[in-house]
């Protein structure tokens, strides 16, 4: 298969970027999208040009590092699929493919398609944890039974891989799905209760400080999330934050 790629090129955070066009040939349907990018880079290096920088690591859809906005959608056209798990058979031979970085003020471009998502780290640092030391003797793991339904919901919220597709896809570049997934995970578990109210306040405040947009409930994040994180989490966070403000806890 052959493709025409339109790729965002940007030298560094301060430089101006632009879309560039590259032909790529000899691609097979079994190649992953990132392997197609490897082929392009191999070609660029051999031609003495600068290869396209992009983030990637595990290439099995779990580390959350890959982050490409492909043909107008975060992680491309397939649902519940990260860029690294997207295969070229999902595209038509001869197609033109647009490849852009996540676009958000809170995610400045590092180079080409790689962006800086440390805003997510700072949000977790603001409260995305249970304050417990590794003393070696907390309660026995089975001391507090957790209803299976709650444990399952907490798990589903916790499967967020922090890739930022929700931000990239949201028309407002809002980080609500990411933040609410972490807030929900702890809100659903007994271990998360003591800090529940202060946690939601601190995390929302940090989210606002980072310059993400506001949630307008379009639901695009849920559709494009490679792990299918639910909007239920956003509602839960809205509820908890309201409660924390009303009760002043």
């Amino acid at each position: 298969m052959d493709f025409t790629l339109k790729i965002w090129r940007q030298e560094g955070p301060q430089e101006q970027g632009r879309m560039e066009t590259y032909p790529v040939t000899g691609i097979t349907g079994d190649m992953s999208f990132l392997e197609m990018m490897d082929v392009l880079n191999d070609q660029l290096i051999r031609d003495g040009q600068d290869p396209v920088a992009f983030d990637h690591d595990c290439r099995e859809g779990i580390c959350g590092m890959c982050s490409m906005f492909i043909n107008g959608e975060a992680h491309g056209p397939n649902r519940k699929t990260t860029t690294c798990q997207l295969h070229m058979r999902s595209f038509k031979d001869g197609e033109t493919i647009y490849i852009e970085p996540w676009r958000a003020a809170a995610f400045p471009v590092v180079k080409d398609l790689a962006v800086d998502r440390s805003a997510f780290d700072r949000i977790i640092q603001s409260g995305g944890y249970v304050s417990v030391n590794s003393s070696g003797n907390p309660l026995d793991a089975n001391a507090i039974p957790v209803p299976k339904a709650d444990a399952d919901d907490a798990f589903n919220a916790a499967t967020c891989i922090g890739c930022g597709a929700c931000v990239a896809t949201c028309k407002n570049a809002s980080a609500m799905l990411f933040v609410s997934a972490k807030v929900s995970q702890f809100a659903l578990l007994p271990q998360g209760q003591p800090e529940r109210m202060s946690r939601v306040q601190r995390m929302v405040d940090q989210m606002d400080k980072e310059g993400f947009g506001n949630c307008t409930n379009t639901g695009a994040c849920e559709v494009e999330c490679p792990k299918g994180i639910s909007l239920d989490n956003i509602a839960r966070m809205n509820r908890d934050y309201l409660k924390s403000k009303v009760t002043g806890e």
Binding site: K6, W8, G17, M19, F69, N71, G72, E73, P77, Y98, E100, R103, A104, A105, A106, T169, K171, N172, A173, S174, G211, F212, G213, N214, T216, N217, T218, G219, A220, V223, E224
Partner: peptide, 27 residues
């Protein structure tokens, strides 16, 4: 809210297919 939202994405996408993931009115 709208002004803040605009500021949150200073550079627009060259290619967007928003209709695939959200309703027209919500956008």
């Amino acid at each position: 809210l709208s002004l803040q939202n605009r500021k949150a994405r200073p550079v627009r996408y060259a290619m967007e297919r928003a209709s695939t993931n959200a309703g027209w009115s919500s956008r």
